[in-house]
Design a binder for these strands. Structure first.
Length: 108
DNA sequence: TACATGACTATCC
DNA sequence: GGGATAGCCATGT
């Protein structure tokens, strides 16, 4: 477990149900540019059911990837179970479900 | 130490 | 809006 992963997992738990966030948002929240590392850390996902890794999507509005069981299919299923519509591998009203982290120095 | 890799993003057409 | 290319930076070998 790397410190970076812990930060990422903490951020993931802040994502409310029925919402999704982007790797870029997490990277920004952690004040880092290592977007790819965020994805990598999430991909490890040692606490699968504990960490809502399925609520993380790329900025393209697509589903992205999933290392869990069933892969992307499962990820889509989970999102739909939480109220996020997914069509053709893309999130419907993606920006509407988009959740951004609260940046302390970004507020006001 | 150096190189390769990865659940991505921004830019260009 | 979408495919291809380059940049990105922590991790692992």
């Amino acid at each position: 477990m790397t410190p970076f992963q812990e930060e990422v997992y903490k951020a993931l738990e802040k994502i409310p149900k029925g919402s999704v966030t982007t790797y870029g948002a997490i990277a920004k929240y952690l004040n880092t540019k290592a977007i790819r590392v965020v994805g990598t850390a999430v991909g490890k996902n040692p606490n699968a059911p504990q960490i809502p890794c399925h609520r993380v999507v790329p900025s393209s509005g697509k589903i992205g990837n999933y290392s869990g069981e069933g892969g992307v299919e499962t990820k889509i299923r989970l999102l739909e179970e939480e109220g996020v519509e997914v069509k053709d591998g893309k999130i419907v009203n993606y920006q509407q479900h988009l959740f951004v982290f609260e940046s302390q120095d970004d507020v006001l």
